[in-house]
Simulated assay, not measured.
Amino acid sequence: MIHALVAGGGIGGLATALALATAGHRVTVLERQDAFTEIGAGIQIAPNGFHALDRLGVGHAVRERAVLVDELRLMDAVTGERLTAVPVTARYRRRFGNPYAVVHRSDLHTPLLDACRTDDRIRLLPGAGLVHHTQDPAHVTATTADGRTHTGDLLIGADGIRSTVRARLLDDGPPHPTGHTIYRTLVPIADVPRHLRSNAVTLWAGPGCHVIHYTVAAGTRLNLAAVLDDGATEAVSGQPAPRATVLARFPDLAPTPRALLELGRTWRRWVLCDRDPADTWTRGRVTLLGDAAHPMLQYAAQGACQALEDAVTLGALLTHAAPDDIPARLTRYDTTRRDRTARIQLFSRRMGTDLFHPAGPHARARNNRLRPLTEDALHHRLAWLHTPQPPPHP
């Protein structure tokens, strides 16, 4: 049995703890917040994410909280025209082996947390944010903000896009603002007129902007987000935004997306950040996972799914591992996951430019490419992204 230290008690960190405990190991999760909670709004879960959740033993619990959608719908935000829609019902589910669903972040985090709390091999330490780590050939020692030290056989940095573990491991500076500002809100579904409700993930694509919406929290809330390509250069996270400011920043929307934005009462603002793909995530007994390893823009809706894939891959590779095996197994985890996640990072950037935000002739070219695509053709284009990834043999 090995003892793993996991920095970060979010979705990726808890999934990693479960995966390693299932592999027979002892895990200590170091979380900087005083409680294990998940803030934020909606998350989309594709079949590859559900496949990972099933391997972790929490797929059923997440499905019970999720909204299984019927289609992924792309609309023109200026004309109101329907551009295309990807059906994600029976044929899609047969092809990929799982549904496409949306959840509130807490509806994914809570089942993972509950499973960790019932596993004797997992120790959860809130108020213990990692501030420093060292390693020698046999061990890793983590120092937390409360002054305690924790020693284990390996350390996994699952501490987000501004990862403390990554800063020491790679020393590659802060994440890069992308020049896109996102405004988010949740609207009680009772406040949404019936003609604006649908069982779909609907994206309204406009010149340099888009609006996306879908129901979460078992259908009781509308998750609503509006993104503007405004060249923002300063990272902002969760800053309150006046409703009037949000509405003024999106003046040229068609009536339906405009009516949806007007439903929002309490808005918060983020400036989206990401990183270029890294050449490695691993040094000796320390590695990275999820946003700490490969932060990606939300345009491919794969951030959570890729963290879950990371976790089950790491768990599979560390099955039956002894302490002396760890550096080689972590290197294999790195090489197994890095190409796929790098491809998705770069693909997510291109989606923002080519699919969500084009203007003028570029928007017309996008529309002409999408209109002829059949259901099978659309599913084929998503296959590399949504197909569940088989875990490697240790």
Rank of each mutant, 00 (worst) to 15 (best):
M1C: 08
A7V: 08
I11P: 09
L18K: 09
L20A: 12
T22L: 05
R26C: 04
T28I: 05
D34Y: 04
F36T: 09
G49A: 11
D54I: 01
G57Y: 02
A66I: 09
A66D: 02
V67H: 10
V69M: 09
R73K: 11
M75T: 00
M75V: 04
R82G: 15
N98W: 04
L125C: 12
D136I: 04
T164E: 10
R166Q: 11
D171M: 06
P177V: 03
G179N: 12
T181H: 05
R184Q: 11
I189G: 09
V192G: 15
P193Q: 09
N199I: 03
P207M: 02
G208W: 01
C209R: 09
A217T: 06
N223T: 07
A226G: 07
V227M: 07
A241D: 05
A241R: 02
R243V: 00
T245G: 05
A248E: 06
R249A: 14
A254S: 07
R258F: 02
L272E: 03
D279M: 11
R285W: 07
V286H: 01
L288A: 13
Y299I: 06
A304D: 04
E309V: 15
A311Y: 01
T313E: 04
L314D: 06
L318A: 14
I326T: 14
Q345C: 07
D354L: 01
R364E: 14
A365D: 14
R366K: 07
P372F: 00
A383V: 08
H393K: 15
